[in-house]
Amino acid sequence: MNVQVEHHDKVLVARVEGRVDSSNSQDFERQLQGAIGEDVNAVVIDLGQLAYISSAGLRVVLLVAKTLGQRNVSISLCALSDPVQSVFEISGFNRIIQIYDTQADALAAAG
């Protein structure tokens, strides 16, 4: 698992690659919280290269969404594969966090 960070003006894009499970979710949390500590207006988490996520990883996404919500920073997700999309739907997270098909869509909405 790896988190790559890019800046598009005041929008931060965090691209997550690999697998997030109970063995590395603390590392995932540290990398993601570290990335969003900066002064940004919006955060887009690109999950296009995420092969697998379990409840341990969803917990981190929720924690980050709570942190950003308290700072009035918007958060969205994009480019989920079908199985990852299913997990977000089963968790109900798709009803509380915006999900876009592509990073371009997410950036347009966040811009």
Partner: peptide, 16 residues
Amino acid sequence: DAGVQDRQIGGLGVHF
């Protein structure tokens, strides 16, 4: 159905 700030994570794994 809880919103982001009220949502608890417990039990999600078993729900899956």
